[in-house]
Simulated scan of single mutants.
Amino acid sequence: MTRIEKLFSEKKQQKVLNVYCTAGFPKLDSTLEVMKSLQANGADLIELGMPYSDPLADGEVIQQSGAVALQNGMTIAILFEQLKEMRSIINIPVILMGYMNPVLQYGFENFCAKAAEVGVDGLILPDLPMYEYESEYGQIIKKYGLNLIFLVTPETKEERIRRIDDLSTGFLYAVSSSSTTGSNKDISEQEPYFKKLHDMNLKNPILVGFGIKDKQTFEAACKYTNGAIIGTAYIKALGNGKDVQMATKEFLEKIV
């Protein structure tokens, strides 16, 4: 059983909180400090963003944090160096989220091998097509024991949702609306969509992302799902000038 599977197994009656942070933000050496603070203050799972110059799914706030991280000098190689000792201090699941271009530049198999070596549990690669996953990259991901999480949206047809569910491992990422991260759309309006996913009895747990920013939106997103993902709101909290521990503690106290 992977760390992600174990998490969902142990929290069947509770809601899983996945928090996104950008590697190398607010400072190049902030990565592990941020992760430690998230773990200490109630996050169940960490989604660690690898900054990229053209992040298609990210809104302005996360784009800006990625730009800062790149200016700070963050690269995939530096990130793996920072994560070398991760498992001596971080025991909750960790997912790397990013885009195919920098991963391919690093070398896809090298990337997966290094991710597994440092203790990463899974990957979210929004621009990896299902066909390419099935025909080329899926075997490599499985070889290194990594979970691969696909995204679905309110527009995704039921047949395709079931196909994505078949291919995904770990959990299914349910995008709350067809927008970028940090959306201000009312999450409660998407209740029929979340209920539809729930009623499909999919094999994977479901986490809702995009537009989750406080306790109210977290609770609304969790009504028919296994939990939710918070990103933009936390990145804003980190960027307010307070130290990492204080910013994280104050932010998560309002959620969990």
Score class of each variant (00 low, 15 high):
2 T>V: 10
4 I>N: 08
5 E>D: 12
7 L>E: 02
7 L>D: 05
9 S>Y: 11
19 V>L: 06
22 T>E: 09
24 G>H: 09
29 D>K: 05
36 K>Q: 14
46 I>Y: 03
48 L>T: 14
50 M>R: 13
61 V>Q: 03
62 I>G: 09
67 A>D: 09
67 A>E: 10
73 G>I: 01
74 M>P: 11
78 I>W: 00
79 L>I: 07
81 E>C: 06
81 E>Y: 01
83 L>S: 04
85 E>N: 07
88 S>E: 08
92 I>T: 13
94 V>I: 05
96 L>M: 06
103 V>S: 07
106 Y>G: 04
122 G>R: 10
128 L>Y: 10
131 Y>F: 15
132 E>Y: 12
134 E>W: 08
136 E>L: 15
136 E>R: 15
138 G>F: 13
140 I>V: 07
145 G>E: 06
153 T>I: 08
155 E>N: 13
156 T>I: 02
160 R>A: 11
162 R>H: 02
164 I>Y: 02
172 L>E: 07
175 V>W: 00
175 V>N: 09
176 S>G: 05
179 S>V: 12
184 N>M: 10
194 F>M: 10
195 K>F: 01
197 L>W: 04
199 D>V: 13
203 K>P: 14
204 N>A: 00
206 I>W: 00
210 F>N: 02
211 G>I: 06
213 K>I: 00
214 D>Y: 02
228 A>M: 05
229 I>K: 03
230 I>E: 01
236 K>S: 11
245 Q>D: 14
246 M>D: 11
251 F>E: 12
255 I>G: 07
